[in-house]
Amino acid sequence: MKSEAQKKERTMKLSLPTEELMSSGNLACQGCGATLAMRYVLKALGQKTALCIPACCWSVIDGPFPYSTLDVPIFHCAFETAASSAAGLKAGLEMVGDTETTVVAWAGDGGTFDIGIQALSGAAERNDDILYICYDNEAYMNTGIQRSSATPYGAWTTTTPVKHFKNRPKKDIDAIMAAHRIPYQATASIGYPEDLYKKTKKAKEIKGTRFMHIYAPCPSGWKSRPEDTIKLARMAVQNCVFPLYEVEFGEKYTLNIKPREKKPIDDYLKLQGRFHHLTEEHIKMIQEEVDRNWGRLLRRVDAC
């Protein structure tokens, strides 16, 4: 006789397709959030996908020439050109008769928030038919943990040492993108794969510029344990550090996950060595900033 639990397990429906377009052979660090982000996104987009990857962790993760861990074509492009390369690739493919392929700009936070923001803004304003995905690990991790404008207040990085930790808040890239009135944008997290998958599917079907901002913890840079990657990603949603929401045409805000009980940020910060130097006072300031951001988001959602 099988137990009830065993029976239940046998009939359990997988919430994501089993098809893999990413192989296990790659150069990611242990517990890399960016790798999971790619894996889930490709499950949603399928084989008819082309990626433009600028300088970022993923330009290394994919493997050196002549190898590639992905079963979709990749153009490794210049750091600041993810969006403009993707726009050109889409136009080129269309002119040679391929109108179906989803062209994705796949960039880290440095390539999106900082050096690539001009090209991204240009593509979004033109409403070029590309899916721009930023996997956000909150610093220049590929070059060895230097601060970016996505690095949150209080964090240690190699260019914001403990004595002079980052004293400016994270840039609100999602608000910047909303100001472009693009047809679709969403935040997503590797801690919520079904939500990420659903949003990617949705983005795939929309024409014009689509922007996804995926939260991807980085154990090497955050000084967290590799086994805590998913936990941290889930905590960031539960404590509203990184809320999951969608915006259509810069106006219609939809909150996807509203925590039943909004958790304080303390435990989340404690799991990350990059915040260990912070005093009670700093933590209070960060909590206030999180609360302000959360309140602002709720007002936008409520206004819809």
Binding site: F75, T81, S84, A87, G88
Partner: peptide, 21 residues
Amino acid sequence: IKVESEHSAMAACIAASLAGA
């Protein structure tokens, strides 16, 4: 593609060329 800079102009041309255009 009416780009926002020459840098993006060349980036777009390069990628389009890679597609065979």
